[in-house]
């Protein structure tokens, strides 16, 4: 399992692996929004939590369609399915690698973008914490969506259509936590709910995703 994690991380960092694409997208979004909304710092400060969370969500979505599709194309998925590692473990590890190359860097970069968007000072710690707690759920839900669409020729668009509605609770709790912190309120409740979604997704979705993968392989 560790070998698989190392391989996926290594692939992401090698040329053409797509590491940094999500971060770049995240940055561009944080630049485009003020250009569209106007430079008023008060307005930006109010919408910053929502923009940062929506940006993180879309950045996660960018690399999802490659999660299983590449392994499916080159036959690795067949070989992994016949290997001693349970397919549920394969799903969990690949989702973890996806999180390590998208969600985690996003969480670390988010404060910088918060400055660009004039996020109130009280919210930075909550912003990072909420992203660290919430983005694993995004990767896990995304892995389920990717497992459903792995056999399809043009699965990317369908994947977004399937996954985005399921991202909604994570987005609400994540953005609410940051908004509350920005207003000086206690963000504990949404943070706990966010952690709950991540825990639940990590516990249950590998089984659903592995089931979908087995169906797509047969």
């Amino acid at each position: 399992m560790i070998a698989l994690l190392i391989r996926d991380l290594r692939l992401a960092f090698r040329a053409g692996g797509g590491f940094g694409l999500g971060l770049g997208f995240f940055l561009i979004l944080a630049v485009l929004v003020p250009l569209g909304v106007g430079p008023d710092p008060v307005t930006l400060g109010i919408i910053a939590p929502g923009i940062l969370w929506v940006g993180a969500l879309l950045a996660c979505l960018l690399s999802l369609d490659r999660l299983f599709a590449l392994d499916h194309e080159d036959g690795s998925l067949d070989l992994l399915a016949t290997s001693p590692i349970p397919l549920e473990g394969v799903v969990a590890v690949k989702a973890l690698a996806h999180w390590g190359t998208t969600g985690l860097p996003l969480a670390l970069a988010a404060p910088v973008l918060g400055i660009l968007l004039n996020l109130p000072g009280a919210a930075y710690a909550t912003l990072m914490l909420s992203l660290i707690l919430g983005t694993p759920a995004l990767s896990m839900i995304g892995a389920f969506g990717a497992a459903l669409t792995v056999g399809l020729k043009r699965g990317g668009l369908l994947l977004s259509l399937l996954v985005l509605p399921m991202y909604m609770p994570t987005l609400v709790f994540g953005a609410q936590a940051v908004t509350r912190a920005a207003q000086g309120l206690d963000p504990t409740t949404p943070l706990v709910l966010l952690a709950g979604i991540t825990a639940g997704s990590t516990a249950l979705l590998p089984f659903a995703a592995a089931f979908a993968l087995r169906i797509n392989l047969r």
């Binding site: 839900i141 509605p165 399921m166 909604m168 609770p169 609400v172 709790f173 979604i197």
Partner: peptide, 8 residues
């Protein structure tokens, strides 16, 4: 997730 969305 639909039920979760309702509560969210």
């Amino acid at each position: 997730f639909a039920v979760l969305s309702r509560y969210a």
